[in-house]
């Protein structure tokens, strides 16, 4: 509040305004990934065989596990809002922490996957990747860019939910004023939706 120089006291709080701002922000996030999906679709169209071959090297089990983890974290996030709506502060805090832990589990899986890929020499700039056909270089280029950017969003989401947990503990998020938590939830669900698309596009190419 330090920069709030002249306090424009609104007659009443406008929750819809806050949510509208968040939704618009989500659209720009959606289009940020949208740009990458455009590139993906063009390159997949140009190199169908190579994409299929390269995707066989993905660990489908870990991918599926991560999908379930992220979906479950979305559930706990939604439940934490339902809990605060009913005034159950402790339950809401617990569910928020569980959400963060699921996010952490997702990231741990990612680290395992990436270190495996790196050990096999499938990292950008490596000689073994450079010797592959163009389509496979592009597949891995897009894989690292898209999944990496998504991972960054998971980290940001975890941080944001962490702040929300602190706010809830300090009583800034309450049964009557939980729009901040709702906005954080919207962000977390968007991260989930993006993964819902990334999963089949990188792990399940036949």
């Amino acid at each position: 509040m330090t920069t709030q120089e002249h306090a424009v006291e609104q007659v009443h709080r406008d929750d819809i305004r806050s949510k509208m701002g968040m939704w618009l922000f989500l659209f720009s996030e959606l289009l940020l990934f949208g740009g990458l999906f455009f590139m993906y679709s063009v390159y997949r169209f140009m190199h169908q065989q190579d994409f299929s071959i390269a995707s066989k090297e993905m660990n489908t089990f870990l991918g599926t596990l991560n999908t379930v983890i992220l979906l479950t974290s979305s559930l706990t996030m939604a439940l934490s809002i339902a809990a605060i709506q009913r005034g159950k502060k402790a339950l809401s805090i617990f569910l928020q922490i569980v959400t963060i832990l699921f996010g952490l589990a997702f990231m741990v899986n990612k680290v395992i996957e990436w270190s495996h890929e790196f050990a096999e020499g499938n990292f950008p700039g490596s000689a073994s990747l450079a010797n592959r056909p163009p389509g496979q270089i592009l597949y891995f280029g897009l894989y690292y860019s898209m999944v990496g950017l998504h991972g960054l969003h998971v980290l940001v989401g975890m941080t944001v939910i962490g702040f929300m947990t602190v706010f809830t503990i300090r009583g800034k998020i309450t049964q009557d004023n939980y729009v901040k938590l709702e906005a954080a939830g919207l962000y977390w669900h968007l991260v989930d939706i993006i993964w819902i698309f990334l999963f089949p596009l990188f792990y399940l190419i036949t």
Binding site: I16, T67, V68, L71, L75
Partner: peptide, 25 residues
Amino acid sequence: AKEHSKHAHGYGIYVLVWLALVTLT
């Protein structure tokens, strides 16, 4: 402007949706 978002959402429906999502996965 006067409306606040005052829709309480049920726990049950969330769990159902989650089940559907996992099944689809």
